[in-house]
């Protein structure tokens, strides 16, 4: 077993990677597939949030993650990494963005660098799954409302009040029951007293 462990050579991605690559069928074959993915990765690094078909998004996401993690591990003075960046980023000014902006942003990140959401599909069209792919820490407003647990939100205020109401009703019921049983016991005792006195 002299073989080196692969996990030590290549950094592990923090996303789920499918066992087989998708083929992303197109007339130019595997080369065309890579062209498509390069376009998508370039777009993602450039715009930081893109909406596209789910398959292509999921496939491109893996390459983008790999590219960023290589850049973080080796830095901009490593020739093979530079070549990889040069290959994947079609617009060359984005190479600077990768090393100068994204590497500092994700250096201490212990989650994945990208996020993917399932996007709504247009009605009455071809039924293709859509996704939104974005870089973490982008400047846009968040797509999902993270504050749903804020107790001042109107739905939470209403539910809180309903809960309080329900509890009060239950307490009143319990108190009522206890009162009744006490009364019954008192009645029994008084009856016993009557019997004994007789």
């Amino acid at each position: 077993m002299n073989q080196a462990q692969v996990t030590k050579l290549v950094s592990k991605l923090r996303i789920k990677v499918a066992p087989e690559p998708r083929r992303l069928r197109n007339p130019k074959g595997p080369e065309g597939r890579l062209d498509k993915l390069r376009k998508t990765v370039t777009g993602l690094i450039k715009f930081e949030r893109i909406e596209l078909n789910f398959n292509r998004a999921d496939e491109a996401r893996q390459y983008a993650e790999r590219l960023i993690s290589e850049a973080i591990v080796h830095g901009d003075c490593h020739k093979p990494t530079m070549e990889i960046a040069d290959y994947w980023l079609l617009e060359k000014e984005l190479i600077h963005k990768l090393f100068k902006v994204l590497v500092p942003r994700y250096e201490n990140c212990n989650t994945a660098f990208t996020k993917m959401y399932r996007a709504p599909r247009p009605l009455y069209s071809r039924n293709i799954e859509k996704a939104v792919l974005e870089l973490r820490g982008n400047p846009y407003p968040s797509l999902i409302n993270k504050q749903y647990s804020n107790r001042h939100l109107i739905q939470n205020v209403l539910l809180d009040a309903a809960k309080y109401d329900y509890r009060q009703a239950k307490y009143a019921e319990m108190a009522d029951k206890i009162g009744k049983t006490e009364n019954q016991e008192l009645n029994k005792l008084s009856k016993k007293d009557e019997i004994t006195t007789e």
Binding site: N150, H152, L153, I154
Partner: peptide
């Protein structure tokens, strides 16, 4: 908006 961190006044206006 309705989902800011201190929405009490907005809620009142809504109601």
């Amino acid at each position: 908006t309705f989902n800011i961190s201190e929405p009490q006044q907005v809620n009142k206006a809504f109601w």
